[in-house]
């Protein structure tokens, strides 16, 4: 209804499209999920295509393209419907987006499988891996907190920055629980991967991280999530195994370390 009153000149096709998208009715029925699902698939596939055509240019990573293009399309459509982007996102995209988002739950617990496949390494190095990730994360958190304070982020912004080492499905609820904005955290997780994809190889060389292959792997998995382990594979199989282990273990470490750290720093 909001849309129709905001743009009466488009009443006819506006009502038809509004019904289809579910933006006309509050408490959107299930059929409206179609738009969100379709848009997500569309922008992701465009991203995949661009990545292929652009020969792997770092800004053409499918997920990054999907995010930017999806928001841009919602922004344009909101303009056409004469409503705000946030409002249009909630009524038209979110029902479908939430369905896809739910599947992050089984996908995240599925990471137990690659972890178990490398169980021989996990069993031999579990102490070094967990201690390195805990100490490494605590030290990193002080740097991140300091950088965020220096650049003048408010408490919401800072709390959103702290859990970004975890995989998105785990980082988001932790950000929300410590007073952050889960959407900003999700964007941070996506940017982590974009940055590691673009600069990972150069950073490893510049800081001579590959002198210790185990360390290089754990670092890439922590900073770049699953893209980090793909990057680590270019260095070698030890690095790749370690990165895949780090992606999983760091998420649990973030859950243990970040909430007390946020409380210690007086956030929320």
């Amino acid at each position: 209804m909001i849309i129709l009153t905001a743009a009466p000149h488009m009443a006819v096709w506006g009502k038809w499209l509004g019904d289809a998208l579910g933006t006309n009715a509050a408490g959107a029925p299930a059929g409206n999920a179609v738009f969100g699902i379709f848009l997500s698939l569309l922008v992701y596939l465009i991203g995949q295509w661009l990545f292929k055509v652009g020969k792997g240019f770092f800004l053409f990573q499918p997920l990054f393209v999907g995010m930017v293009l999806g928001i841009f399309i919602l922004f344009l459509m909101a303009k056409v419907f004469g409503t705000t982007t946030a409002e249009f996102y909630k009524s038209a995209y979110k029902p479908g987006g939430d369905i896809i988002f739910w599947f992050l739950n089984p996908a995240t617990i599925a990471f137990a499988i690659p972890l178990y496949r490398r169980n021989d390494i996990v069993k031999r190095f579990w102490l070094e891996i967990t201690l390195s990730l805990i100490i490494g994360l605590v030290v990193s958190l002080f740097f991140i907190y300091g950088a965020a304070r220096l650049l003048g982020l408010n408490d919401i912004g800072i709390a959103s920055m702290l859990p970004q080492a975890a995989t998105t499905a785990i980082a988001m609820p932790i950000a929300a629980a410590t007073g952050g904005n889960a959407a900003i955290t999700a964007m941070a997780c996506i940017l982590n991967a974009v940055i590691i994809y673009a600069l990972g190889g150069w950073l490893v060389k510049f800081f001579r991280l590959n002198n210790d292959p185990i360390g290089a792997g754990l670092g890439l998995g922590t900073a770049g999530h699953t893209v980090g382990s793909a990057k680590a594979l270019q260095l070698g199989s030890i690095q790749e195994s370690m990165a895949s282990i780090a992606v999983v273990i760091i998420s649990i470490v973030v859950d243990i370390v970040v909430p007390p750290f946020a409380a210690f720093m007086g956030l929320k």
Binding site: L63, G66, G70
Partner: peptide
């Protein structure tokens, strides 16, 4: 990677 798309687009609300 595809399943992360909605959490990225969620930014449209912020």
């Amino acid at each position: 990677a595809f399943l992360f798309v909605p959490s990225g687009i969620q930014l449209a609300a912020s």
